[in-house]
Simulated assay, not measured.
Amino acid sequence: MILRYIYGGRLSLEEYDTSDIIKILIAADELNLQELITHLQSFLIENKKNWMEQNFNLIFKTSFGNDSFLKLQNFCMELMSNKPEKIFNSVDFVSLSEKSLISLIQHDKIQMNVIQVWENVIKWGIAQNPGLPSDSSSYSKDDFDALKNTLHQFIPFIKFFNLKNKEFLSKVYPYKKIIPKGLRENLIQYFIDRPNNEPGSKIMINEINSKSIDSRIITFQHAELISKWIDRLEITNDIKNLYEFKLILRGSRDGFSVKKFHEICDYQSHTILVIKMKESDEILGGYNPIIWKSDYSYGSTKDSFIFSFDDKENVGKHILSRVNNEIYAITNNSNYGPIFGNYELCFCGSSVLLQNLVCYEKFIKKIGLFFVEEYEILQIKKV
């Protein structure tokens, strides 16, 4: 084709695929055919605009890989400034190099709000780590570390302080572990303290406060997953209701005695038991939507469940066991602490007893008597 142009001075481009025209452009540059370079760039911009928008990564790398392709460079810069969403929606967006994406998001004239930039940076980062789930609530510590390492160069260019409270809460906070600690703490304090005239701003501040759970055993990620279990949602579903997790008893603060449990928790409903095992990172627990009592009776509910987590950092490794014999979902006995089922999970003070299944679906741990390092009772209510 180039020989035809050299000897004939004419060139018909309609019969060629756009990707082939790009190759011809590169070849023309190698042969220093400036007139052809100019013609090819003009043809692409005038006739193949949509294709170039959909294949932005290729066009960006090609244009900025050579000083001769000024028209294509201007095309890319204009697209980055005025229509960045076309780049983010392009078929090869996740193939952009780190350098290219940083150039895009730090562009002074980019016409896209901060939350859209953040969401697309997260999308790009997840794509660079194929094993990562799309839902951050199921991330392990290693998952967060992988995403943090991938995106650490982008964080300085995200204008977090321009976000709305609700945007920060719903879109940024779930990924807080990839943000450097100092910046993360400043952001949380900023969104708590900031005067805000948005509708429902007080609710938003309460929601942000609820992210800081007063627990030495579970984190917000655990609480988010437990909230989904309470509402019978799948892990991948969006949160249906926001719950405040209020600490009402902690063993190391209030004592581990059975008497203290009944003194504080009797006639309290919607409570969550969480137990940190001794000499292990395991967490055991259960949810009781009805009240605790000191008499010798059974509590009936179809909504209770017991659970276990392998450790505090990895919420993805868990077992959920729902009640399947609701008449005996809860046992009340003044000689013991909280009891789920027919002593299938029984808190005994400094130890926890796990017995054969009668009222719950599956084992959350092998049966036996295990020592407890810490335990807490948290009461939930809708925000």
Rank of each mutant, 00 (worst) to 15 (best):
F93M: 03
A329L: 03
L242E: 09
F256Q: 07
K366V: 02
I239G: 05
E46C: 00
N165A: 15
V315P: 11
S210P: 05
L233D: 09
L70A: 07
F168P: 07
C348K: 13
K382T: 12
F245V: 00
E167G: 03
N288H: 08
D142G: 00
N241K: 13
Q106T: 11
Y267N: 12
I239H: 03
S321L: 05
G349M: 09
G8H: 09
V94A: 06
N335T: 10
D92Q: 10
N314V: 06
S134E: 12
G299Y: 08
D67W: 02
I158D: 09
F220L: 10
R250G: 13
L357P: 04
E373V: 02
N342S: 14
I178L: 14
K23W: 01
S257R: 06
G131H: 15
Q268R: 15
S95A: 12
L345F: 11
I126T: 03
Y267V: 06
N89L: 12
K159M: 02
I26C: 01
T271L: 03
E35S: 14
I291S: 08
Y336K: 11
S252V: 00
I290V: 13
L11K: 06
K86M: 12
E78H: 03
L353R: 14
H318T: 03
L233S: 10
D193Q: 13
P289S: 05
G316K: 13
K166N: 11
C265Q: 10
N57P: 00
Q221S: 14
V323M: 01
C265K: 01
K246M: 00
L101A: 07
N149A: 07
K148M: 07
H39G: 00
I203M: 09
Q189R: 13
C346G: 09
V121E: 01
L36V: 02
E119Y: 00
F157S: 08
N66C: 08
Y5P: 06
L320C: 02
